[in-house]
């Protein structure tokens, strides 16, 4: 099978990010503005249109594109790593009840006064994933089947609490909660990027370090022990950064469906199953994917549609098309 190099995604990433700076409801921003802003980022322009364009470019579009890239890359890398961990390609970061937990935390913060939104949702995601993990532990270690089951249960409980909050709150808050859960890259800012980026980059570094060990782990517990590694420890070392990365992403951008499930598949189809290649390619491909989908979300309508709707509407059919075309992508 012909394999693409992860370097191809790296080469694609820069033009995609640059081109995305042109996309948006305002037609003030032109190529010369971007060139000017890039070449002289700190000098103040004299002309008013230029100043406005510059403001849109640097304060609205650039943080948004960067956040979309970071979140897309983070969700995809987290999904790929968890798929290697549970040895099942049908898994996404949601498997640990993480998204529901994060949504639950966010809803609490939006419904009650005095709770900061982003930390609450981050903690909600971490707590849900932690609970799923602890429930799945038994005397013989971490059972993958139990992990999937406990993730479903924890996710279900969180969704129930979320619904309960939605029933109780006033309609205005209800709308905010619903919008939050659909993904909200349109609220991107440098501040949001600054708060999420360190956690996401830290987790990504951990996953990058573990990328070859994911190959070992994907072969099975017995096979991992047979070559002298402790599978429980290795699983935890993948699970921790994967959870960190996904929780921080959901906390800053809301629930963006399908990215963590579908993009890892596309990446494996492109670069092959070896995780030493697939992990860096996942970050780049996921970033490119979400930036492009967000471009569409901005370009199609004059008002903002939550990006989570688009990732599912566009990603879903495309994913099914790829699976059908490639046929037996996974052994059977």
């Amino acid at each position: 099978m012909k394999r693409l190099s992860p370097g191809l995604f790296a080469a694609l990433a820069i033009p995609v990010v640059l081109a995305s700076l042109f996309v948006g409801p305002s037609d003030l921003v032109q190529a010369r503005h971007i060139a000017q802003a890039l070449t002289h980022p700190f000098s103040l322009p004299g002309d008013e249109t230029l100043a406005m364009a510059r403001e849109i470019l640097l304060q609205v579009r650039l943080p948004r594109v960067l956040l979309a890239f970071l979140v897309g890359g983070a969700l995809t890398t987290s999904g790929l790593s968890l798929q290697a961990l549970v040895r099942n390609p049908l898994v996404s970061p949601d498997i640990l009840g993480l998204s529901s937990g994060a949504a639950c935390g966010a809803a609490l913060a939006l419904a009650l006064p005095g709770i900061p939104l982003q930390p609450a949702s981050f903690l909600g995601g971490l707590l849900a994933a932690g609970a799923s993990y602890l429930l799945a532990l038994n005397r013989r270690g971490l059972s993958i089947l139990s992990l999937v089951l406990s993730g479903i249960i924890v996710g279900g409980v969180c969704t129930a609490i979320l619904t309960l909050i939605q029933v109780w709150v006033d309609p205005f808050k209800l709308q905010t909660i619903v919008h939050w859960t659909m993904g909200n890259l349109h609220l991107a800012s440098w501040e949001k990027l600054r708060s999420a980026a360190p956690l996401i980059l830290l987790g990504l570094a951990g996953l990058y370090f573990m990328r070859w060990r994911m190959n070992v782990l994907a072969l099975g517990d017995e096979e991992t022990r047979a070559v002298g590694l402790n599978p429980e420890r290795e699983k935890l070392f993948v699970l921790l950064p994967a959870t960190l990365v996904a929780s921080a992403s959901v906390a800053v951008a809301g629930i963006i469906g399908l990215v963590g499930l579908a993009v890892p598949h596309m990446v494996r189809m492109a670069v092959g199953p070896d995780n030493t290649r697939a992990v860096p390619a996942s970050f780049l491909a996921g970033g490119i994917f979400l930036v492009l989908v967000d471009d569409l979300a901005r370009a199609i309508t004059t008002f903002e549609l939550p990006v989570g709707i688009f990732t599912t509407l566009i990603g879903g059919p495309f994913f099914i098309y790829l699976l059908k075309r490639s046929g037996a992508a996974f052994g059977e």
Binding site: A84, R213, N215, G220, V227, R268, P273, F330, G331
Partner: peptide, 16 residues
């Protein structure tokens, strides 16, 4: 295994 790892990548895991 479900993932279609290349034979050489499986052999390499012996070095884990």
């Amino acid at each position: 295994t479900v993932f279609p790892f290349a034979v050489q990548d499986v052999v390499l895991t012996g070095r884990a």
